[in-house]
Design a protein around this nucleic acid. Structure first.
Lengths: 358, 358
DNA sequence: CTGTTAGCGCGTTCAA
DNA sequence: TTGAACGCGCTAACAG
């Protein structure tokens, strides 16, 4: 009996192209069973090391499977409902340092535990985020870890996940009205401290540049900033909200418009390292001295934060810890060790690395 | 008739914990069919807009599906053999700039064409890469785009993909003995030019620091470096191979050992921006002046390359173009528009951005 | 220890 | 235009 059967697929296009493609038929447990004169359920058991199969048989099956490079069809396995080892990770941007670090760490963590991670990028678009969630449901992912898009005000699509019994964990940017575990950064507190630090350093006109305050992250930072100003009775308040993308270019423009306005700031707290880099570049252009003319503290970090002159005082977020907690909270839901709405938020601590920029 | 049936799942552990979980049963085409008094095959046709279904029926089905948030089960769809819209992307590191850029771009490209990208990270480990390929086969991915691990000498696992009829495209770091389309950077040529540039600038003792020369990328760079030295009859040759990870730390150590040796280099071409950043930091430590004491050209880029003083002359690789070509070559294979072994390699051009470091 | 049977959800025959 | 029946590959319940 011939084992390796070839399938010829003939493709005829209208342009009289002819492609002929040879492809091995995928070997299945039935093929193995037929060849070995056992029943395919025996093969299934043998492959899964079910103890109720004779060692001799099992070895025969395993040997055959290995020799013929059998690979299980997970679509069939999962259709049976047994399990799904795929986890979805949704982030606004893969190539932003904060997120790529988390993606990298989560990918490793998950793989070590036998899960596979699919990464989805929303590009900060609500509509895309919705589509992605739909895709995730259709593919029966075992769970979802998400940091929401800037654009996202309505979290109904995440409720859909709940309806389909797919566990969910939020990190960093969250939907507050969804009862799922959340891993949060102490944004309010750390921004308070950063502002306080600037005040203590003698800065009088501190601008806080952050994102859309519909998002918890930016709203909390804004709060911390304002609370510090209040505590120290500083009248100058300038909580700026940037709706542009956080890029070097918008940082440049920002400093320009800030400098040509009558706001006359002497310090900036920036929510994005990319903005900050633009601001710095433009400072050079305008011959502004940092920290003398302008003090700077930035959220986020790049290699550059400590390589450039002056080194930038930065607020570092614990990406590893965020990844670990998020994964742990998800895995526990998958294993039914915790129930989503019984979990209180986990708060991780950011840290200010004091350097030369203020 | 009751539509939303609840399923109680009772989990009893040996430790006398009791978890009770309520979950909606997933709605299927059969559920819809039963509710609407039609056959499930009619529902199937209606949902896929098969013209052979009465408009009235179709609208009824679609309305019901939408109202009850029906989501197809892709495991079943794919088990039928219809198709799979998931593409796997394998990279050594997600959080290295070059790769995260490509991941980001590919994710967008693919999504626009109706594909979903799963990203896998090998951490430069051959064994992990093999496992990942196996996972990919088991999940019936529609195609794979890969840049191989430093560790990978043997490409048999990629041959396995071919056996299972899964299209494959290599980019940047490739397996040369596998007959799949490849998107390559003109590494030899550009390193030749970089070396030439240093020579013309008067540097006499140029060190080339690169990775494992089993990998095409680093071997080609090495060649370009040596060819330039040969052309200009330079006797000083120091093609260094770094087997450590490309990190800032190993860059620091590298410069230290280089400086305390009797090699006495006056210029460096570095294959990694992370190494380069370490080298620069250590230059400051040792009070070395760049470019006077040491000229530097680096592969790769970060925001910092143009923000630090001196700005670094860097070799920029066209990530967007690489992503676009790779995706195009994969999609054409998926659609049987091209046959893998008929495709000649695509070479994209890197570019030297001349700045202040040499 | 092994075989038989049924069914996961879907799409595609073939009939009506 | 719709229904009935089948099977994709696999696992589990039941039987022997």
């Amino acid at each position: 009996m011939q084992m390796h059967t070839f399938v010829n697929k003939l493709f005829l296009s209208l342009h009289t192209f002819v492609f002929i493609q040879f492809m091995h038929k995928r070997i299945t447990i039935k093929d193995i069973a037929r060849e070995l004169n056992v029943h395919h359920s025996t093969v299934s058991r043998a492959l899964r090391k079910d103890p109720r199969v004779k060692e001799e048989t099992r070895e025969m099956v395993l040997a055959y499977a290995q020799e013929h490079e059998y690979q299980a069809n997970m679509n069939a396995v999962q259709l049976r409902g047994t399990s799904n080892n795929a986890i979805a990770l949704i982030v606004p941007n893969i190539n932003h340092n904060f997120f790529s670090d988390i993606v990298s760490k989560l990918t490793n963590l998950a793989y070590d535990k036998g899960y596979v991670i699919s990464v989805f990028q929303t590009n900060e678009k609500y509509e895309l985020e919705k589509e992605i969630v739909s895709t995730i449901i259709q593919h029966n992912f075992a769970g979802v870890i998400v940091s929401i898009a800037n654009d996202t005000k309505n979290g109904d699509h995440f409720r859909l996940l709940e309806k389909f019994g797919i566990p969910l964990v939020f990190f960093d940017r969250v939907c507050e009205d969804i009862a799922s575990p959340k891993v949060l950064v102490n944004n309010r507190e750390i921004t308070f401290q950063a502002t306080e630090h600037l005040i203590n350093k003698g800065y009088k006109r501190i601008v806080h540049i952050t994102g859309n305050t519909d998002i918890n992250v930016f709203r909390e930072r804004q709060k911390g900033y304002l609370e510090a100003l209040e505590k120290y009775l500083v009248d100058y308040r300038n909580p700026m909200v940037i709706t542009d993308e956080f890029t070097t270019d918008s940082g440049k423009k920002l400093l320009n418009s800030l400098w040509s306005s009558d706001l006359n700031p002497d310090a900036i707290i920036s929510s994005s390292i990319y903005l900050t880099m633009g601001i710095l570049l433009q400072c050079r252009e305008l011959k502004l001295n940092v920290p003398a003319d302008l003090g700077i503290i930035t959220f986020g970090t790049l290699l550059s934060t400590e390589i450039i002159t002056p080194q930038i005082t930065s607020i570092e977020q614990p990406e590893s810890e965020i990844a670990e907690l998020s994964f742990e909270l998800l895995e526990k839901q998958i294993n039914h060790e915790i129930v989503p709405d019984k979990i209180h938020d986990m708060i991780v601590k950011a840290e200010i690395l004091f350097r030369e920029s203020c």
